[in-house]
Write a protein that binds this DNA or RNA. Structure first.
Length: 328
DNA sequence: CCCGTCACGGTTGAT
DNA sequence: GAATCAACCGTGACG
């Protein structure tokens, strides 16, 4: 029901708003990574952004591993590994050596580079192919001409979830998109220290450097969101404007200034984050995690109106991504 | 106190 | 078009 979406989502222990089952908006994810790069500890990021520490940990871990702040691809099925190309090769192996075993075929597929470890068919899959599709080699030409898959994938060796699987030195991007510069990807360093600086493998990074990297990331992801919406996870909250959201979230206020369902943590760390984009606009308000448009407006105009505004925008955004409207 | 991990209830999209 | 399935999500609790 896109007319009646979860208006505010749910509120977590930190007072942040989230939509169960849906990823945090890119703006929040981006902010998490940016704060981590600035040396803010995950626990403090969690409090500042009112996102559970488990989530912060997960996002940072993924960023460290893949270089991407984007969530994984939700829903859908894994692409079939037994593509026509793979079947063709299996048939070839079987023709050359009728006594070949399925496991040998599997090894050869890997050795010949037909498949990689991500899309290598299981032995049982190969057996099934041998049984169902190549059982009678005399019919192979018939298969060749007419029994193609209804929607054959353009390539045979695209690893599943390849959009979010990045090498360490260079971040892979969707086809046609510019490559993320190497310095945007984090090194695979995972020291024992719990310090985010150590976790991210950054000895020293200036705020200017961070901003520069951030801007590049924003530009890239804006382009990605606009150009290839199909290939990226269609996050309800992910429009270009979403990047203003996290920057406008009022900082976490310790219980001395705000009654929060979450009590008991130190207030000393909220001052770690400074800068013009992090200044409180008004009093406390629920973190607009489920909203993606210009919430900075909303948070300047009072809580009640803000909530209504967020709700309306949330509806609109859901409509956008559910195909009710064309993307602007 | 901080962090990593996991169960849980939820959403999503291909089949 | 509905059901199913397997992917993902963030939260909250635990160690």
């Amino acid at each position: 029901m896109w007319f009646n979406p979860p208006a505010f989502g749910e509120v977590n222990q930190l007072g942040g708003v989230f939509v169960n089952g849906r990823p945090l908006p890119n703006a929040i994810r981006l902010r998490i990574v940016e704060l981590a790069q600035l040396g803010i500890r995950p626990c403090d990021i969690s409090r500042q952004l009112r996102v559970s520490h488990g989530c912060v940990s997960k996002i940072l871990a993924r960023y460290n591993e893949t270089g991407s702040i984007l969530p994984g691809a939700i829903g859908g099925s894994k692409p079939r590994v037994t593509t026509p190309t793979v079947v063709k090769h299996i048939r070839t192996y079987k023709q050359r050596d009728p006594g070949i075993f399925a496991w040998e075929i599997r090894d050869r597929l890997l050795a010949d580079g037909v498949c990689d470890k991500f899309n290598l068919p299981s032995v049982s899959s190969i057996s099934r192919i041998l049984r169902n599709k190549i059982g009678n080699l005399s019919q192979q030409s018939q298969y060749e001409s007419g029994k193609q898959a209804p929607h054959p994938p353009p390539q045979a060796t695209i690893p599943y979830n390849h959009l979010y699987s990045y090498p360490t030195s260079k971040v892979q991007t969707p086809p046609g998109m510019p490559t993320i510069p190497g310095h945007m990807a984090m090194h695979r360093i995972w020291p024992s220290s719990h310090s985010v600086t150590d976790i991210l493998g950054i000895r020293s990074i200036t705020e200017q450097q961070s901003k520069h990297a951030l801007n590049e990331l924003i530009s890239l992801q804006r382009a990605v969101n606009g150009i290839d919406k199909q290939h990226l996870q269609p996050n309800t909250e992910y429009t270009a404007n979403s990047y203003a959201t996290a920057l406008s979230i009022p900082p976490y206020h310790p219980p001395t200034t705000r009654v929060s369902p979450c009590t008991g943590y130190s207030a000393t760390t909220s001052a770690c984050v400074t800068g013009p984009t992090w200044r409180p606009v008004s009093g406390s308000a629920p973190s607009p995690h489920n909203c993606d448009v210009d919430t900075s407006r909303a948070f300047r105009s009072g809580t009640a109106d803000s909530i209504h505004y967020i709700s309306s925008l949330s509806s609109f955004c859901q409509a956008l991504t559910s195909g009710k409207f064309a993307v602007l």
